[in-house]
Nucleic acid binder design. Structure first.
Lengths: 139, 139
DNA sequence: AAATATGCGACCGATTTGGTCTGAGTTTTG
DNA sequence: CAAAACTCAGACCAAATCGGTCGCATATTT
């Protein structure tokens, strides 16, 4: 239904959390999971993927945890989502032009590509810094 | 992965097809299915749902079929998609404001709502008339 | 009445997804 | 040095979703 996966959701929550405390040390998967009522092991898995993609920096050992790799203004929602869910494509063959050989009459993809672009643009320009300040407005 | 369902895809293809032949009679589910290599029964199901939602007008009996209920300029991609897949929401609790009671710390939804709005806007302003002419440019 | 349509609901198998478990390797602390 | 706390990595499982099929009823034209 064109819905974000729960893992991506958790990822956004976590990264936003780390963005809010940027420069103030690390937070462990357990910490974040408890703060938002997310299954700890799943949270860990999501964070691992984000670290592997270079969005987060991990620190092993006791008192270790995760930290944003870049200032919050330079981390976009799109990066977080596509790090977890893979590339954002509204339809399967929207990415590369010549992928729709199977159905040569695939008349729909071309216009949908523009929609896809606008989605990517909307998510790409949404920084974690913005998400932090937006949340603070509500209290 | 925030991807359109195949049914919605088929729906768009079918409605665009009907838009291209608007005012020139009806097309049956079988016709459209054959034209694009879509499983006929599945195509039928999709068309039925679109008819039920009032996007298409159906005509029973032999030489029957489907027809666009409105001129192509007044049918949006959003209508087609949400008729099939349900309402377009990027996250589950983006729709109504107070739906996120379960996790009171749900700090992420508010900024995502704007993204959701831009997606809805992009799909809502994409008319079938546009899709028809866009396809003709290539073909 | 026969042929051809839509309408509708049940059903099935495959894929995806949310979530768990296990077992490693690493760093700090005592 | 050993224990504790953490990240890392993969297999694994159950449930939900999704693509697709089947059967039957109903309506319409010929």
């Amino acid at each position: 239904m064109l819905r974000l996966s729960k893992k991506a959701d958790y990822g956004l929550i976590a990264v936003r959390h780390l963005a809010a405390m940027y420069g103030q040390g690390t937070a462990s998967a357990k910490d974040i999971a408890q703060a938002y009522g997310i299954p700890p092991q799943l949270m860990a898995k999501v964070l691992q993927r984000l670290a592997k993609k270079g969005l987060l920096v991990s620190q092993h050992g006791s008192a270790g945890g995760y930290e944003l790799a870049r200032p919050p203004a330079f981390v976009s929602a799109l990066e977080v989502i596509s790090a977890i869910d893979g590339p954002m494509v509204i339809t399967s063959c929207v990415t590369s032009q010549g992928e729709c050989q199977q159905t040569p009459l695939c008349t729909v993809r071309e216009p949908l590509r523009k929609v896809n672009e606008s989605i990517i643009n909307a998510l790409g320009t949404l920084s974690m810094a913005q998400m932090v300040s937006a949340a603070e407005l509500r209290g």
